[in-house]
Computed example of a mutant assay.
Amino acid sequence: MISDNFNIEEGILEQYKAILEDWIPEEASIAIAVKDTFVYFRSGHHKVSLKIGSPVPPNSVAYKVLQTNRKVDALMDSSLFETPYYAAGYPISINGIRGALIIVLPPCFKTSTPSSYRFLTGKQNEEWSPIPIEQISHIESLHKKTWFYRQGEQYKTTVTLKELQIRLPDIFVRIHRSYIINIYFIQRIYRDITSNFIIKLKDGTELPISQSYLNEIRNKLEF
């Protein structure tokens, strides 16, 4: 079903459908929200209270995607369906308007996430040392290589920032395309003379917060 309230080309929706059919189960449901309204819905196995034209509920996966313009996935309550459900949401653009593509998976669906790193093995000169993850103050991508820091010492690792972002425990947060920090090593957060946010670590290192990660950091650190 497609809402008549938005000028959405059928071809755009068909493109999304063709991509999704390669990997989502047949019993999954698909919803698309534009601005603050659901404009498309295809039901899988679910008993649905969601209707085309319904407002996007606060704190739903669709709402979080629209607010942050980032991928969101979560196990949700029964506000839209009669049972709790797992949903993954992705930011999309339709006719230049921000939207959210939501995949609703069966209640029996279970996610498997890789285990968190408990240590990183770092290289200095021609020696390798396993460093406990809680001792690492921050991690940096520089010149297409990844470096992490412990007590002011620099170590090189073969793991990318993208992989680290997925598998680091939640004491770490990404603040920039080039930096991930351990929140326990933060001394203070302040604005510089251009009003950009800067994080100063306890060892004196100062790192910029990228605008694209600012909302995530505000939510996590509650400031």
Rank of each mutant, 00 (worst) to 15 (best):
W147I: 15
P55D: 11
I97E: 09
I103N: 03
I209G: 06
I52Q: 01
D192M: 13
S79K: 10
D73R: 03
R42F: 00
Q67N: 06
I198A: 08
Q211P: 08
A28P: 12
F38L: 05
V34M: 13
F109W: 07
G11D: 15
S43V: 04
I180G: 08
S79H: 14
T68S: 01
Y85H: 09
P57H: 10
I8A: 09
D73P: 06
H138Q: 00
L80I: 06
Y16V: 14
K47M: 00
V104K: 03
F148S: 09
P130D: 10
C108Y: 12
T121H: 06
N95E: 04
H143E: 15
E140H: 08
A87N: 01
K145D: 12
Y213D: 07
A74Q: 05
N196T: 15
I102T: 10
I171E: 01
V159L: 12
D36L: 05
K47Y: 11
L161A: 11
P55H: 14
W147L: 15
E222Q: 15
R177E: 13
I131W: 04
D192Y: 14
A100V: 06
I102H: 09
D36S: 09
P106A: 10
E140V: 09
L80Q: 05
G11K: 15
L161M: 12
G99E: 06
H46T: 05
I94D: 01
E127D: 12
Y90R: 02
I103A: 07
S29H: 09
N59R: 11
R188S: 13
L168G: 03
I175N: 06
S210R: 08
S54C: 11
